[in-house]
Amino acid sequence: MKIIPYKDTYDPGLLQPVPRAPHRRELGIAESLPFTGVDLWTAYELSWLDPSGRPRVAMATFVVDARSPNLVESKSFKLYLNSFNQTELASPESLRQRLIADIGNACGMPVDVELKLPGAFGDERIEELDGELLDDIDAEIRDYRPNPALLRTGRSETDETLVSNLLKTNCPLTGQPDWASIQVRYRGPRIDRAGLLRYLVSFRRHGGFHEQCVEHIFMDILGRCAPERLTVYARYTRRGGLDINPFRTNCGEKPPRNVRTARQ
């Protein structure tokens, strides 16, 4: 059995930036983005030492602007957070400022960081994504690689929010499954719901980072269905004490509150 050492003293060099531009070029996204948005990260396993050597714990929310040139590879993010385990810090605010500096440096753009200390843990809520559920539609599904041809529209116009809990993608580095609930809110030609469900399930064997998969879905729906307004938001279940929740919109919609779903 191979033992992988974990560093438990502060090391920002563990963070591994991944440029967004190459994958966006594959999707036909030019330098001017067709959306705004954020990546909401939640860290559930964060600990450090106070000046007396006592362990402290917290949860953290990170807000990364979609305009940042880089995302951060999630395992490297976890290893970086673990590097605080035996690191002495003067205060929670000292930790927060260090997180802001390091992650902002890795992403290439300032980020927002909020710490939730144990006294506020009881305020944590669970909410499911709002919208009409697609998952019980009686549809035969045979495509398990992204297939935008499954997306179809009718002649009527609508304004609706649709949700599925059946999105599965896979880590491009390890092949491990990534599970998510996804919300599609749009105004425009009515999207065939069975086709949308088939399309979302077609990502089941696809490898991509969470942020890339949501942008892939956004661009396919935008290109195939031509909605006037479109928002795509996914909440991925946590792995390694982290969940990642990308949000993309072309209508100026404000990012949602970072409230976890039951599966997270």
Rank of each mutant, 00 (worst) to 15 (best):
105 N>L: 04
146 P>E: 04
138 D>C: 11
167 L>W: 05
173 L>V: 15
173 L>R: 10
259 V>M: 03
39 D>Y: 09
256 P>N: 06
180 A>C: 02
218 F>Y: 15
39 D>H: 11
123 D>A: 07
72 V>N: 09
235 R>C: 04
252 G>D: 10
80 Y>F: 15
17 P>K: 01
200 L>A: 07
40 L>V: 08
76 S>N: 09
177 P>F: 06
247 F>A: 12
199 Y>A: 03
237 T>M: 09
56 R>T: 03
96 R>L: 08
236 Y>N: 12
39 D>Q: 08
141 I>W: 01
97 Q>Y: 14
122 G>K: 02
85 N>W: 04
259 V>C: 13
156 S>Q: 12
231 T>N: 10
233 Y>E: 03
189 P>I: 01
23 H>Y: 15
210 H>Y: 12
260 R>G: 10
178 D>E: 05
142 R>P: 05
52 S>N: 00
257 R>Y: 14
38 V>M: 03
253 E>Y: 02
244 I>N: 12
258 N>Y: 03
103 I>Y: 08
186 Y>P: 05
129 L>Q: 05
231 T>H: 05
36 T>A: 13
74 S>P: 08
24 R>S: 06
198 R>P: 10
208 G>H: 06
113 V>H: 11
190 R>S: 13
30 A>R: 14
153 T>R: 00
212 Q>F: 13
123 D>Q: 01
163 V>T: 06
228 E>I: 02
202 S>W: 09
163 V>C: 05
3 I>H: 10
235 R>W: 00
115 L>G: 04
234 A>V: 04
123 D>S: 11
55 P>Y: 11
37 G>V: 09
54 R>H: 09
138 D>H: 13
6 Y>M: 06
181 S>P: 02
151 L>E: 00
130 D>C: 06
94 S>V: 12
219 M>D: 01
234 A>T: 07
114 E>Q: 11
106 A>P: 15
204 R>S: 02
70 N>G: 14
235 R>M: 01
226 A>C: 02
173 L>A: 11
143 D>Y: 14
54 R>T: 09
144 Y>D: 00
95 L>F: 10
9 T>Q: 10
86 Q>S: 12
165 N>P: 14
166 L>Q: 13
122 G>I: 00
87 T>I: 02
19 P>F: 09
183 Q>V: 03
185 R>L: 03
61 T>Q: 15
246 P>G: 13
151 L>T: 07
164 S>T: 13
237 T>D: 06
189 P>R: 05
95 L>G: 14
55 P>H: 13
115 L>I: 06
141 I>D: 05
158 T>W: 09
116 K>N: 12
52 S>Q: 13
12 P>C: 00
19 P>Y: 04
144 Y>G: 00
166 L>H: 07
69 P>S: 13
172 P>L: 00
57 V>Q: 07
51 P>A: 01
88 E>N: 00
184 V>C: 01
18 V>A: 07
161 T>D: 13
154 G>C: 03
153 T>D: 06
109 M>H: 11
159 D>C: 14
263 R>S: 13
210 H>A: 06
106 A>Q: 03
176 Q>E: 12
245 N>Q: 08
206 H>V: 00
178 D>H: 03
167 L>Q: 00
37 G>T: 14
